[in-house]
Computed example of a mutant assay.
Amino acid sequence: MVPADDPREDRIRAIVRDELRNAGRSLLGTVCWTLLAVVAALVGLQLIQLAAFTGSTAAAIGFALVGLVVVGSSLALLYVLYWT
C-alpha cells in the first residue's frame, strides 16, 4: 500500500509533461529574442555607418544618435536574456 503523501505516477507524468512544454516555450522565446537583438544591433551599426556618409551635419548626428540608441537597446536586451 502506498502512503497518501507519496505522489502518484500519473501526477508525476503530468508535472513532467507541463515542465517540458514550458521549457520548450522558454527556449524558443530566448532564441527569437536573441535573433531580434542581433538584427537590431546590425541595423544600429548600419545607421552609425550611414552617419559617416551623409551630406549634412544634422543628419549625421541624427543617424549616429539613433544608431547608438538601437545598438544600446539590443545590447541591453542581450544582457537581460543571458546575464540576469
Rank of each mutant, 00 (worst) to 15 (best):
M1K: 07
M1W: 05
V2H: 15
P3R: 05
A4M: 11
D5Q: 15
D6I: 00
D6P: 02
R8F: 00
E9F: 10
D10F: 12
D10A: 15
R13Q: 14
R13K: 15
A14M: 10
A14L: 15
I15H: 08
I15S: 05
R17V: 04
D18Y: 01
N22A: 04
N22F: 06
N22P: 00
S26L: 07
L27Y: 11
L27D: 03
L27P: 02
L28A: 10
G29S: 14
T30S: 04
V31H: 09
V31R: 13
C32F: 10
C32D: 10
W33I: 12
W33M: 13
W33F: 14
T34F: 13
T34L: 09
A37F: 00
A37V: 01
A40Y: 02
A41Q: 11
L42H: 03
L42G: 04
L42W: 10
L42K: 03
V43K: 05
G44P: 00
Q46A: 09
Q49N: 15
L50Q: 09
F53Q: 08
F53V: 06
T54P: 04
T54F: 07
T54A: 07
T54S: 06
G55M: 04
S56P: 01
S56K: 07
S56E: 04
S56T: 12
A58R: 07
A59V: 09
A59I: 14
A60G: 11
A60I: 01
I61H: 08
I61Y: 05
G62V: 10
F63K: 05
L65Y: 01
V66C: 12
V66T: 14
L68I: 10
L68Q: 04
V69K: 03
G72Q: 06
G72V: 02
S73D: 12
S73V: 14
L75A: 13
A76N: 12
L77H: 08
L77V: 15
L77D: 02
V80N: 09
V80Y: 06
W83F: 15
T84Q: 15
T84E: 13
